[in-house]
Design a protein around this nucleic acid. Structure first.
Lengths: 125, 125
DNA sequence: CAGAATCCGGTCAGATACTG
DNA sequence: CAGTATCTGACCGGATTCTG
Protein backbone atom coordinates (compact mmCIF):
# COMPACT_ATOMS: atom_id res chain seq x y z
CA UNK A 1 0.00 0.00 0.00
CA UNK A 2 0.95 3.58 -0.35
CA UNK A 3 3.29 5.19 2.08
CA UNK A 4 3.35 2.07 4.15
CA UNK A 5 6.04 2.35 6.70
CA UNK A 6 7.36 -0.64 8.52
CA UNK A 7 6.83 -0.25 12.17
CA UNK A 8 10.03 -2.02 12.95
CA UNK A 9 13.30 -0.21 13.44
CA UNK A 10 13.75 3.40 14.21
CA UNK A 11 11.55 6.28 13.39
CA UNK A 12 14.18 8.40 11.73
CA UNK A 13 15.03 5.70 9.25
CA UNK A 14 11.40 5.26 8.41
CA UNK A 15 10.73 8.91 7.99
CA UNK A 16 13.77 9.33 5.82
CA UNK A 17 12.74 6.48 3.59
CA UNK A 18 9.33 8.02 3.51
CA UNK A 19 10.65 11.43 2.49
CA UNK A 20 12.27 9.91 -0.55
CA UNK A 21 8.98 8.39 -1.55
CA UNK A 22 7.24 11.65 -1.02
CA UNK A 23 9.67 13.29 -3.39
CA UNK A 24 8.61 10.91 -6.12
CA UNK A 25 4.96 11.65 -5.45
CA UNK A 26 5.65 15.35 -5.57
CA UNK A 27 7.50 14.97 -8.83
CA UNK A 28 4.52 13.26 -10.37
CA UNK A 29 2.17 15.81 -8.92
CA UNK A 30 4.20 18.70 -10.23
CA UNK A 31 4.17 17.34 -13.72
CA UNK A 32 0.42 17.10 -13.86
CA UNK A 33 -0.52 20.15 -11.88
CA UNK A 34 -0.94 23.59 -13.26
CA UNK A 35 -4.09 24.57 -14.93
CA UNK A 36 -3.34 23.30 -18.41
CA UNK A 37 -1.23 20.17 -18.31
CA UNK A 38 -4.07 17.70 -18.31
CA UNK A 39 -6.10 19.51 -20.97
CA UNK A 40 -3.03 19.65 -23.20
CA UNK A 41 -2.24 15.99 -22.72
CA UNK A 42 -5.87 15.14 -23.33
CA UNK A 43 -6.03 17.19 -26.49
CA UNK A 44 -2.81 15.69 -27.82
CA UNK A 45 -4.01 12.17 -27.15
CA UNK A 46 -7.15 13.07 -29.01
CA UNK A 47 -5.52 14.84 -31.95
CA UNK A 48 -2.42 12.67 -31.93
CA UNK A 49 -0.57 15.46 -33.61
CA UNK A 50 -1.29 19.14 -33.80
CA UNK A 51 0.04 22.56 -34.58
CA UNK A 52 0.30 25.31 -32.01
CA UNK A 53 -2.72 27.29 -33.09
CA UNK A 54 -4.88 24.22 -33.57
CA UNK A 55 -4.01 23.10 -30.08
CA UNK A 56 -4.85 26.50 -28.71
CA UNK A 57 -8.25 26.48 -30.38
CA UNK A 58 -8.95 22.98 -29.17
CA UNK A 59 -8.18 23.78 -25.56
CA UNK A 60 -10.11 26.98 -25.55
CA UNK A 61 -9.08 29.73 -23.20
CA UNK A 62 -5.37 29.21 -22.96
CA UNK A 63 -3.12 32.10 -23.93
CA UNK A 64 -0.17 31.46 -26.24
CA UNK A 65 2.18 32.28 -23.43
CA UNK A 66 0.76 29.60 -21.18
CA UNK A 67 0.50 27.07 -23.97
CA UNK A 68 4.10 27.66 -24.92
CA UNK A 69 5.30 27.37 -21.35
CA UNK A 70 3.37 24.23 -20.58
CA UNK A 71 4.40 22.55 -23.81
CA UNK A 72 8.04 23.23 -22.99
CA UNK A 73 7.67 21.60 -19.63
CA UNK A 74 5.89 18.61 -21.07
CA UNK A 75 8.60 18.29 -23.67
CA UNK A 76 11.30 18.43 -21.02
CA UNK A 77 9.53 15.61 -19.29
CA UNK A 78 9.49 13.61 -22.51
CA UNK A 79 5.74 13.46 -22.65
CA UNK A 80 5.44 15.58 -25.75
CA UNK A 81 7.53 15.77 -28.87
CA UNK A 82 8.05 18.96 -30.80
CA UNK A 83 8.89 18.70 -34.47
CA UNK A 84 9.92 21.53 -36.72
CA UNK A 85 9.54 21.02 -40.42
CA UNK A 86 11.59 23.30 -42.56
CA UNK A 87 8.84 24.61 -44.77
CA UNK A 88 7.95 28.19 -45.38
CA UNK A 89 6.49 29.33 -43.12
CA UNK A 90 7.87 26.78 -40.70
CA UNK A 91 5.48 24.08 -39.60
CA UNK A 92 5.72 23.03 -35.99
CA UNK A 93 3.86 20.01 -34.79
CA UNK A 94 3.35 18.70 -31.34
CA UNK A 95 2.55 15.11 -30.59
CA UNK A 96 2.35 12.89 -27.59
CA UNK A 97 5.19 10.43 -27.16
CA UNK A 98 4.76 6.74 -26.49
CA UNK A 99 6.11 7.45 -23.05
CA UNK A 100 3.59 10.23 -22.69
CA UNK A 101 0.83 7.73 -23.13
CA UNK A 102 1.97 5.88 -20.03
CA UNK A 103 0.61 8.63 -17.87
CA UNK A 104 -2.91 7.79 -18.93
CA UNK A 105 -3.21 5.24 -16.15
CA UNK A 106 -2.26 7.80 -13.51
CA UNK A 107 -4.61 10.35 -14.94
CA UNK A 108 -7.34 7.76 -15.02
CA UNK A 109 -6.77 6.94 -11.36
CA UNK A 110 -7.00 10.63 -10.57
CA UNK A 111 -10.16 10.89 -12.60
CA UNK A 112 -11.82 7.99 -10.85
CA UNK A 113 -10.88 9.18 -7.43
CA UNK A 114 -11.91 12.72 -8.25
CA UNK A 115 -15.22 11.64 -9.67
CA UNK A 116 -15.95 9.52 -6.64
CA UNK A 117 -14.85 12.33 -4.38
CA UNK A 118 -17.25 14.78 -5.98
CA UNK A 119 -20.14 12.49 -5.14
CA UNK A 120 -18.87 11.93 -1.65
CA UNK A 121 -18.69 15.64 -1.02
CA UNK A 122 -22.14 16.27 -2.47
CA UNK A 123 -23.66 13.54 -0.32
CA UNK A 124 -22.27 15.21 2.73
CA UNK A 125 -24.13 18.44 2.05
CA UNK B 1 -8.37 4.15 -20.76
CA UNK B 2 -7.98 7.63 -19.53
CA UNK B 3 -9.42 10.53 -21.39
CA UNK B 4 -10.52 8.24 -24.15
CA UNK B 5 -12.77 10.08 -26.47
CA UNK B 6 -15.00 8.26 -28.86
CA UNK B 7 -14.22 9.25 -32.35
CA UNK B 8 -17.83 8.98 -33.42
CA UNK B 9 -20.21 11.90 -33.29
CA UNK B 10 -19.33 15.51 -33.12
CA UNK B 11 -16.26 17.10 -31.72
CA UNK B 12 -18.05 19.54 -29.49
CA UNK B 13 -19.89 16.82 -27.64
CA UNK B 14 -16.70 14.93 -27.11
CA UNK B 15 -14.77 17.89 -25.90
CA UNK B 16 -17.55 18.87 -23.57
CA UNK B 17 -17.72 15.40 -22.08
CA UNK B 18 -13.98 15.54 -21.82
CA UNK B 19 -14.05 18.85 -19.96
CA UNK B 20 -16.24 17.34 -17.31
CA UNK B 21 -13.76 14.56 -16.84
CA UNK B 22 -10.94 17.01 -16.66
CA UNK B 23 -12.74 18.79 -13.86
CA UNK B 24 -12.72 15.61 -11.83
CA UNK B 25 -9.03 15.13 -12.46
CA UNK B 26 -8.36 18.69 -11.44
CA UNK B 27 -10.35 18.24 -8.27
CA UNK B 28 -8.25 15.27 -7.32
CA UNK B 29 -5.08 17.09 -8.24
CA UNK B 30 -6.01 20.12 -6.18
CA UNK B 31 -6.62 18.05 -3.11
CA UNK B 32 -3.19 16.48 -3.21
CA UNK B 33 -1.18 19.39 -4.44
CA UNK B 34 0.34 22.03 -2.29
CA UNK B 35 3.58 21.45 -0.57
CA UNK B 36 2.32 19.68 2.50
CA UNK B 37 -0.74 17.60 1.77
CA UNK B 38 1.04 14.36 1.04
CA UNK B 39 3.46 14.63 3.96
CA UNK B 40 0.55 15.31 6.28
CA UNK B 41 -1.47 12.41 4.99
CA UNK B 42 1.59 10.20 5.20
CA UNK B 43 2.34 11.24 8.74
CA UNK B 44 -1.24 10.71 9.83
CA UNK B 45 -1.37 7.28 8.28
CA UNK B 46 1.81 6.51 10.15
CA UNK B 47 0.79 7.97 13.49
CA UNK B 48 -2.89 7.15 13.09
CA UNK B 49 -3.68 9.93 15.48
CA UNK B 50 -1.69 12.92 16.54
CA UNK B 51 -1.70 16.29 18.18
CA UNK B 52 -0.85 19.50 16.37
CA UNK B 53 2.65 19.95 17.74
CA UNK B 54 3.53 16.31 17.37
CA UNK B 55 2.44 16.44 13.76
CA UNK B 56 4.48 19.54 13.19
CA UNK B 57 7.58 17.90 14.62
CA UNK B 58 7.03 14.78 12.59
CA UNK B 59 6.75 16.66 9.33
CA UNK B 60 9.70 18.85 9.99
CA UNK B 61 9.79 22.27 8.43
CA UNK B 62 6.16 23.17 8.28
CA UNK B 63 5.04 26.35 10.02
CA UNK B 64 1.95 26.27 12.23
CA UNK B 65 0.15 28.51 9.80
CA UNK B 66 0.64 26.13 6.92
CA UNK B 67 -0.14 23.07 9.02
CA UNK B 68 -3.31 24.65 10.24
CA UNK B 69 -4.39 25.67 6.76
CA UNK B 70 -3.67 22.34 5.18
CA UNK B 71 -5.37 20.42 7.97
CA UNK B 72 -8.48 22.52 7.50
CA UNK B 73 -8.58 21.73 3.82
CA UNK B 74 -8.04 18.05 4.42
CA UNK B 75 -10.79 18.12 7.01
CA UNK B 76 -13.16 19.83 4.59
CA UNK B 77 -12.43 17.06 2.15
CA UNK B 78 -13.26 14.49 4.81
CA UNK B 79 -9.82 12.97 4.72
CA UNK B 80 -8.92 14.06 8.23
CA UNK B 81 -10.93 14.23 11.41
CA UNK B 82 -10.32 16.84 14.06
CA UNK B 83 -11.33 16.00 17.59
CA UNK B 84 -11.39 18.37 20.51
CA UNK B 85 -11.36 16.90 23.97
CA UNK B 86 -12.59 19.14 26.69
CA UNK B 87 -9.65 18.86 29.00
CA UNK B 88 -7.64 21.71 30.39
CA UNK B 89 -5.78 22.76 28.42
CA UNK B 90 -7.82 21.47 25.50
CA UNK B 91 -6.47 18.48 23.68
CA UNK B 92 -6.88 18.47 19.95
CA UNK B 93 -6.18 15.36 17.97
CA UNK B 94 -6.07 14.79 14.28
CA UNK B 95 -6.58 11.45 12.67
CA UNK B 96 -7.05 10.07 9.24
CA UNK B 97 -10.56 8.98 8.37
CA UNK B 98 -11.47 5.66 6.81
CA UNK B 99 -12.33 7.59 3.71
CA UNK B 100 -8.97 9.29 3.88
CA UNK B 101 -7.30 5.95 3.60
CA UNK B 102 -8.89 5.42 0.21
CA UNK B 103 -6.55 7.93 -1.32
CA UNK B 104 -3.62 5.66 -0.63
CA UNK B 105 -4.13 3.93 -3.93
CA UNK B 106 -4.00 7.18 -5.86
CA UNK B 107 -0.95 8.31 -3.98
CA UNK B 108 0.65 4.99 -4.63
CA UNK B 109 -0.01 5.31 -8.35
CA UNK B 110 1.56 8.73 -8.26
CA UNK B 111 4.50 7.36 -6.35
CA UNK B 112 5.08 4.56 -8.82
CA UNK B 113 4.80 6.78 -11.82
CA UNK B 114 6.98 9.43 -10.21
CA UNK B 115 9.64 6.91 -9.25
CA UNK B 116 9.69 5.46 -12.72
CA UNK B 117 9.78 8.92 -14.20
CA UNK B 118 12.82 9.89 -12.18
CA UNK B 119 14.73 7.00 -13.65
CA UNK B 120 13.51 7.78 -17.11
CA UNK B 121 14.70 11.33 -16.85
CA UNK B 122 18.06 10.32 -15.43
CA UNK B 123 18.61 7.84 -18.23
CA UNK B 124 18.04 10.57 -20.73
CA UNK B 125 20.89 12.67 -19.37
C1' DC C 1 -0.20 23.33 23.75
C1' DA C 2 -3.04 24.86 19.63
C1' DG C 3 -3.35 27.86 16.86
C1' DA C 4 -4.57 33.17 14.80
C1' DA C 5 -2.80 37.65 12.98
C1' DT C 6 0.28 40.23 10.30
C1' DC C 7 3.77 41.21 7.02
C1' DC C 8 6.13 40.26 2.90
C1' DG C 9 8.71 38.46 -1.12
C1' DG C 10 8.19 35.33 -4.98
C1' DT C 11 5.76 32.97 -8.38
C1' DC C 12 1.50 32.14 -11.30
C1' DA C 13 -1.28 33.18 -14.74
C1' DG C 14 -4.11 36.46 -17.53
C1' DA C 15 -4.38 40.54 -20.85
C1' DT C 16 -2.38 42.83 -24.39
C1' DA C 17 0.77 43.84 -27.85
C1' DC C 18 4.37 42.66 -30.91
C1' DT C 19 7.81 39.73 -34.19
C1' DG C 20 9.53 36.83 -38.12
C1' DC D 1 1.46 30.46 -38.35
C1' DA D 2 4.28 30.09 -34.04
C1' DG D 3 5.39 32.06 -30.81
C1' DT D 4 7.93 36.26 -27.49
C1' DA D 5 7.68 40.50 -24.43
C1' DT D 6 5.81 43.22 -20.92
C1' DC D 7 2.81 44.58 -17.35
C1' DT D 8 -0.18 43.39 -13.60
C1' DG D 9 -3.06 41.66 -10.01
C1' DA D 10 -3.81 37.41 -7.34
C1' DC D 11 -2.22 34.00 -4.62
C1' DC D 12 1.26 30.90 -2.23
C1' DG D 13 3.96 30.02 1.36
C1' DG D 14 7.52 31.49 4.81
C1' DA D 15 8.95 34.35 9.12
C1' DT D 16 7.61 36.29 13.05
C1' DT D 17 4.74 37.58 16.70
C1' DC D 18 0.85 37.08 19.70
C1' DT D 19 -3.19 34.79 22.35
C1' DG D 20 -5.90 31.71 25.58
Amino acid sequence: MALEIKRVGEKKTDMKECSTKILAVRDALEIFSGKWKIPIIGALIYLETSGFKELQRMIGDITPKMLSKELKELEMNLLVKRTVEDTRPVTVTYSITEYGKTCQSVIFELYQWGENHRNKIKEEM
